[in-house]
Design a binder for these strands. Structure first.
Lengths: 142, 142
DNA sequence: CGCCAATAGTTGTATATACAACCATATCTC
DNA sequence: GAGATATGGTTGTATATACAACTATTGGCG
C-alpha cells in the first residue's frame, strides 16, 4: 500500500475536490465507531468553538450555505446534540451544543485525533502546517 | 467585498472540505453559461487528458468511487459528450470523449480559465503553485 | 403609524457522493 | 475444464450540498 502519488490536475477546483473526497473517506472510516459522520463532527466541533451562534454565523465559518445547514443540523437536533435557542431577533435561529453533544464530541476525540495523526504523518509536518494556512486563505479568497 | 480570511479550523478534513465548497461555488458560477457543472467539467477534462479509459482508472485519477461515476457519467453520455466503448474484458466499461464532448469542453474553456485566473490572482502565484502540489500529495496520501 | 427594503431561515428540487449488497465476467488452481 | 476466487460495474439507500423561490421578521423613512 504505497502512497501512490496522483498527478496534479490542471484545475484547482478539481484538485481541491479530489483531495477533499480522498481525505473525507479516511476520516469517515476513522469516525465509523463514533456514530458521527465527518460533517456532523465538524458541526459539533465548530459549535463547540463558537459557542451559542446564529445559523448564519456558523455557515460563514464553515462556508456552508444556510439552506444546507437547515438540513444537516436537523438530525443533530433530533439526536439531542445541539439545540435551537431563541433570542431577540425572532428570524434568527441560534444554535448551542448541548451537554450530550459535548460528550459525544469528546467521545469521538480519540478517533478524530488518530485520523489527524495518520494524515499528518503521511504528509509530513511541514506540508501539514502549510496546508492549514493555505486552505484557510483559499476559503477566504473564493 | 474584502477577502475576509476565515480562521483555520482544527480539523484538516474540515479545512479541506470548506475550501472545496467555497471554490466550487466560484467555479460553478463561472461555468454557469457553459451548461457544465464543475463535476462535469472535471470529468470531460480528465477524459480528454486520459484518452480512452476504463471507468476504474478514471475513478482512480479523480479519487471518485466507481459507483459515483456510474451516475455522474450517465447524463454526460445522454448529452453525447462521452461514449462507452467495449473492449476485450467484458466487465470493463471504457469511456471516450466524443467530438461533441471535446467541443463542449473547448467552449467552456474561457469561462474555466477566468475562474482559474481569478482564484490565482486572489491567492498569489506562490500559494497557487504550492497548493497544486500539496493537494496532489494529499489525494495520494489519504 | 405604515409601507418598503433588507435580512434570516425553510422548502422544492437537483446534483454529487459513497457504502453495502449484488451480478457478471474473468482468472486461477487443481 | 470445473469450482473457487478476484475484479469491474450497477442498484439500493442515505447523506451532503446548493440554487431559486418563498415566508417571516426586522429596520428604515416618510
Amino acid at each position: 500500500m504505497a502512497a501512490e502519488s496522483l498527478p496534479a490536475l490542471p484545475c484547482a477546483c478539481a484538485n481541491l475536490r479530489r483531495a477533499a473526497r480522498a481525505v473525507t473517506r479516511g476520516y469517515e472510516a476513522a469516525l465509523k465507531g463514533t456514530g458521527l459522520t465527518p460533517t456532523q463532527h465538524t458541526l459539533l466541533q465548530a459549535l463547540d468553538l463558537l459557542g451559542l451562534s446564529p445559523q448564519g454565523a456558523l455557515g460563514e465559518l464553515l462556508a456552508i450555505d444556510s439552506t444546507t445547514l437547515t438540513r444537516t443540523l436537523r438530525p443533530l437536533e433530533r439526536a439531542g446534540w445541539v439545540r435551537a435557542v431563541s433570542g431577540a431577533d425572532r428570524r434568527e435561529v441560534r444554535w448551542a451544543l448541548t451537554l450530550r453533544g459535548r460528550r459525544r464530541l469528546e467521545r469521538a476525540r480519540p478517533a478524530w485525533e488518530r485520523a489527524q495523526a495518520r494524515l499528518r504523518t503521511r504528509l509530513g509536518a511541514d506540508v501539514w502546517a502549510r496546508l492549514a494556512a493555505d486552505l484557510a486563505a483559499v476559503a477566504g479568497a473564493a
